[in-house]
Amino acid sequence: MKNLLLFASGNGTNAENIIRYFHLKKTARVVAVFTNNPKAGVIKRATALQVPVEVVSREDFRNPDILIGKIEKWHPDLLVLAGFLWKIPSELILRYPQRIINIHPALLPRFGGKGMYGSHVHEAVLAAGERKSGITIHYVNEKYDDGQIIFQAETEIAPEETPETLAQKIHQLEYNHFPQVVEYVLEGNLSKN
């Protein structure tokens, strides 16, 4: 059985979805959730599903020896960012090459980069007059939202779309695809496409 370590900063719906998916599959398991936010909703969600949670301080996150030590005790096969807002340190990327993946709520390479998360992304997509948006699952490298794309899924943007309604469509794509793409990556496939 393979080990997944999740990183999340917010409500944790994607993390919960991944935990539940692999609980049923029995091919991998989420061994822990790391969060940088001691008030994050993901803490309650993971705890309810009996997955250990570790709150990582900014100081520990910036210290490669401490951070890698905290991660290594879980023996992860893959690190999955599920709404994690801090930039991953280069030492961690070097330690886990092609073993850290992220989900972004837009069709990269557009609408990515520092500060482009959550409603900021949806507002930018609508302001640009796009006809489609979607999700991108990608490997993490040293730049925000710049790693090799693993998978993308699209949704149409309606003329009356708002950031809130677009967010609902994007969340549905995340729930439908993220766990399966994690599984494909664990199995050694580069892409679900």
Rank of each mutant, 00 (worst) to 15 (best):
L126M: 06
H23A: 13
Y184F: 12
R110K: 15
D65L: 12
N176L: 15
H75V: 09
K73Q: 12
F34P: 00
I157N: 01
F151E: 09
E160R: 12
R58A: 13
E164S: 13
E154N: 11
E16G: 08
Q172Y: 05
E59H: 08
N3L: 11
A158L: 14
I135R: 00
H171V: 13
I71D: 00
K2N: 10
E156I: 10
I101R: 00
H171N: 11
I101L: 10
V56R: 02
E123H: 15
L81K: 04
K2G: 03
I66G: 01
L92H: 07
G12L: 04
E160C: 06
H23T: 12
Y144T: 05
I137V: 10
Q98L: 13
N3C: 11
L78V: 08
P89N: 08
V33R: 02
Q180I: 14
I68A: 07
N176E: 15
M1L: 14
G118V: 12
R110I: 00
A32Q: 05
A32R: 07
V33T: 09
F84D: 00
L94K: 15
P159W: 10
F22C: 02
P159Y: 10
V80Y: 01
P163E: 03
D65F: 10
K114H: 12
G41L: 01
R45K: 13
K132P: 02
E154W: 09
S9E: 08
H104N: 09
G112W: 05
A124M: 08
I93K: 05
I68G: 05
G69M: 06
F111G: 02
T35W: 01
G115T: 06
F34V: 06
E72L: 14
Y21H: 14
V31P: 01
P179H: 03
Q152H: 09
F111Y: 11
G10F: 08
